[in-house]
């Protein structure tokens, strides 16, 4: 068993979990934050992306134990005082989501992308989101959403 002490969405968490617990499982099953989704078993789809110490990470590719002492942000932590994060707002405005399943991972990856690329081109946005699969949108409105959020993150 692994003893964990970490911050999730600004809240201090202390838990004990089996050593082989994936971070995605920990977030979904132990913390009941089901906004983080699992869409594959090979760390390809990106539906489970969260931020670990401010950087986007596929939470199915990391043990919960390895996130000890870190700061985690999930999709549930973005909204502040009932106000959507600018990237969430932008996805809504530009119809950047349909079934919503890839959306949490897509939003978390987009935020990281906009932090590391202050003024990305369309190509940079498309390449930057290459680790997230969406089957509904054909990506066009996701790109439009990210573009519109440039300078707002």
């Amino acid at each position: 068993m692994a003893k964990l002490s970490l911050t999730v969405n600004g809240k201090k968490i202390e838990k004990e979990v089996p050593d082989n617990t994936l971070l995605a499982t920990f977030i979904r099953e132990n913390l009941n934050l089901t906004g983080t989704h699992v869409g594959c078993d090979t760390s390809q789809c990106g539906a489970c992306v969260v931020h670990v110490n401010g950087k986007s990470v596929k939470s199915c590719a990391m043990f919960a134990a390895d996130a000890n002492n870190s700061e985690i942000m999930t999709i549930e932590g973005l909204e502040k005082d009932g106000k959507l994060h600018p990237v969430q707002e932008s996805f809504k405005k530009h119809h950047g989501l349909q079934c919503g399943y890839c959306t949490p991972g897509m939003v978390m990856s987009s935020i990281d992308l906009l932090k590391t690329h202050k003024n990305p081109t369309d190509d940079e946005i498309r390449k930057g989101l290459e680790g997230n699969i969406c089957r509904c949108t054909g990506y066009q409105n996701i790109v439009a959403s990210v573009k519109d959020a440039i300078g707002k993150v």
Binding site: L33, T34, G35, T36, T74, I75, E76, L78, E79, L84, Q88, F91, K92, K93, H95, L97, C99, G100, Y101, T103, P104, V107
Partner: peptide, 13 residues
């Protein structure tokens, strides 16, 4: 704009 979006964007789907 879609009525259903907010729940999906905030992880409440």
């Amino acid at each position: 704009e879609r009525k259903e979006d907010k729940k999906f964007l905030t992880g409440r789907g």
